[in-house]
Design a protein around this nucleic acid. Structure first.
Lengths: 125, 125
DNA sequence: CCAATAGTTCAATAAACCTTGAACATGGGG
DNA sequence: CCCCATGTTCAAGGTTTATTGAACTATTGG
């Protein structure tokens, strides 16, 4: 089994793929939630997004986010921790991620809600 | 026949739709070319994009760009003149269009080429 | 060792998408 | 007035997409 999932290199990140990835409301919400959480911890695991859909559907969206270079996944035991590839995105397309995130923030009420997901981080081994 | 095609109001412009629209290489090239040309004249007509595909395919992409609020179309005789809705986009999602355009500029070589389209504007009635 | 947990993978389905060509509408120039 | 140029609309195709549930793998804790 792929111990470490495939990620594109920085140079392999393609603009149309990134935009396409961000154009899906669920994936946009994932990225948005990941960005919101960055001040607390830079990582979240799959289960933290359960408010956005079923497990297998989320796994599908996670894969797309990984393949287009937006997210990185780290395997730790039975968990997968994911974080935004901010530095790579910024190097490749300066200002783009921030512009999308602040645009999403303006329309946060139109994003799929994260339903009761308390998001009380703080301790995670 | 729709004398003036439908355009969404500023408030109706949706982020996922805009990103989805820009994620297609042909549409991204259309928007990019429109932006490039802005210093000369803020409008181009359909035929100016013939390097990017067949007429009916382009009409399809123009419609999508219109429906998502990226472009506006003005009918003049037998021509349709189109321009970017910069002000509306900027009001709705500040910085987004510029970030996408400068990202596209970095990868201009990966955009569909505008093949021999000389782009010698200057006079257009 | 067993059971529960966390995620992925697979197959199937329905919807949306891009592309093409043919038919159509409309306005301008000889 | 007729024809040509400019675009749009329509139907058809083939491809990709999102979503679901069931089966599967792997790790942790008792």
């Amino acid at each position: 089994m792929s111990r470490t999932p495939l990620h594109p290199t920085r140079e392999q990140i393609e603009l149309p793929m990134v935009l396409d990835c961000l154009s899906d409301p669920i994936r946009l919400a994932i990225v948005y939630q990941l960005a919101q959480q960055e001040r607390v911890s830079s990582e979240l695991c799959c289960g933290d997004f359960s408010g956005l859909g079923g497990k297998s559907n989320l796994a599908y969206h996670f894969a797309k986010l990984r393949e287009c270079g937006l997210m990185q996944t780290r395997v730790a035991g039975t968990n997968r921790f994911m974080r935004l590839r901010r530095e790579d995105l910024e190097a490749r397309f300066p200002g783009l991620l921030d512009a999308v995130l602040s645009s999403a923030a303006r329309d946060a009420d139109r994003l799929p809600l994260v339903s009761g997901c308390e998001l009380v981080e703080g301790d995670r081994k």
